[in-house]
């Protein structure tokens, strides 16, 4: 398995989400951290993250944040790791961006849906288009289908982010290949409120990798893609690259994964879902 050559995807501006997902997938599959990926990890995860516990960090960030959405967000405690998973409130999030570099690219749309008591609550689903400061690059527009024309009347990130933070408050975020969402959202918070968003995500891609290694199965190219995993769980085929559809798809996948873990004897706790 490790004889496979680490993927050498370029970190060019034209990096598409699919490529990014492919890098991450390769990393998870082979255990090899390629250099392109390393660059992001180090810029995005400062050393102090590894020194202080999450609760302390969140308390401190809450103190430091100016009055506003981010402070409100940090003020609310969130579930402890030993709670059974279906008593925890989650928020599945997906976003589409102009590219994959959180430092330079911009969020174009955010979709999210809460999972409460093990049910995906569509009534509380949210979807926002975000007006970027620069035009949408053609190569990403091809993927998510969001064109400049759609965004003319869209609100700015400053207007959208409070809604997202509000939806996230008290809920554990879920994403497929969560790094992208985590970095972009954190970057946005830093830009707007001067402080990062520090929260562990449930990553359905990581959960799946673990499921593979638990059952000693070999992970093949593409096995960890959202669509492919959903197919294996018998979940319906949805169109990809619509932030809300992907968020719902991720939420459903998490339910399926958690239920499958419950198939084993012991109760699944939130800690089991967090990487």
């Amino acid at each position: 398995m490790s004889t496979e050559k680490p993927a050498e995807e370029p970190v060019a501006d034209s990096l598409r989400e699919d490529d990014w997902e492919a890098i991450e997938e390769t990393r998870l599959r082979t255990g090899v951290v390629d250099k392109a990926f390393d660059k992001y990890v180090h810029t995005m995860e400062p050393l102090w993250r590894h020194v202080f516990g999450i609760d302390l960090r969140r308390w401190w960030l809450g103190m430091r944040s100016p009055h506003g959405p981010l402070k409100d967000y940090y003020r609310k405690d969130y579930a402890t790791l030993d709670l059974p998973w279906n008593r925890v409130e989650f928020l599945a999030i997906d976003l589409e961006a102009t590219g994959l570099d959180p430092d330079h690219d911009e969020i174009l749309s955010i979709g999210y849906v809460p999972v409460i008591k093990g049910r995906v609550k569509l009534a509380e689903a949210g979807y926002h288009l975000v007006r970027p400061r620069r035009p949408v690059p053609e190569e990403t527009a091809v993927i998510h289908g969001i064109l400049d024309g759609h965004l003319e009347n869209a609100p700015s990130l400053r207007e959208v982010l409070p809604h997202v933070l509000k939806a996230m408050t008290g809920r554990v975020p879920i994403a497929h290949h969560a790094r992208l969402e985590r970095f972009f959202l954190s970057r946005a918070c830093r830009q707007l409120y001067g402080n990062p968003l520090d929260v562990p995500f449930v990553d359905t891609m990581v959960l799946e990798r673990k499921a593979f290694s638990r059952s000693n199965r070999e992970i093949k190219q593409g096995d960890l893609r959202l669509g492919r995993i959903r197919e294996r769980y018998g979940l319906p085929r949805y169109r990809a690259h619509d932030a809300l559809v992907d968020a719902i798809g991720t939420a459903e996948l998490m339910l399926a994964q958690a239920s499958a873990m419950e198939g084993g004897k012991k109760a699944v706790r939130m800690g089991d879902l967090l990487s």
């Binding site: 995906v120 569509l122 979940l235 319906p236 939420a251 339910l255 399926a256 499958a260 419950e262 198939g263």
Partner: peptide
């Protein structure tokens, strides 16, 4: 919007005799 999605493993009891009925279920898969 009024739909809630639920995932139930094989063998999950959705409706139990004598219990109040709360939902209409549509089988998605």
């Amino acid at each position: 919007k009024d739909v809630e999605i639920r995932y139930a493993r094989k063998g999950t009891e959705l409706i139990t005799p004598g219990q109040p009925a709360e939902f209409l279920y549509i089988v998605r898969t």
